[in-house]
Amino acid sequence: MDWDFIVGHVNYWLFIVLMMTGLYIVVAKGNLVKKIVGLNIFQTAVFMLYISVGKIDGGTAPIFPTDMKIDPAVVYSNPLPHVLILTAIVVGIATTSLGLALIVRIREAYGTIEEDGIYQIEKDIAAEEYRLHNELKSRRS
């Protein structure tokens, strides 16, 4: 592990730190809106990792001069990740809003957006159903 290797890879590791912060929010926090924010952080970190793969040393943004007189000495960064991530961001907000809409419906159905609360309600419903089931069974026999 020499110095060049560390400088060349520290970027990726920092993106991974950000990703893992997002993942931690998703796993550890019970609030559904916060989980969505965590997913967004994770998503943005993945986007930046992708873009950083396409960066070329000494390169510039992949746009030619308007008059199309292209200087062959100019290095352009890889435009392909840019295209993929650009569309992914807009798709990301569309799916995020779908998640938020689901949260709104969950709140209307359960009265809470905390995971623990929803789990508790589900458990109560299941226990009630189990009780009814046993009652019916004992009546039949």
């Binding site: 943005t44 840019h82 991530i85 650009l86 938020l100």
Partner: peptide
């Protein structure tokens, strides 16, 4: 990272629309 198009989208979407929603 030279991704001006992506930065543009991220600023418009992430800080604009997603905050409102």
């Amino acid at each position: 990272l030279d991704a001006v198009d992506v930065a543009f989208t991220e600023a418009a979407v992430g800080a604009g629309i997603s905050t409102v929603l």
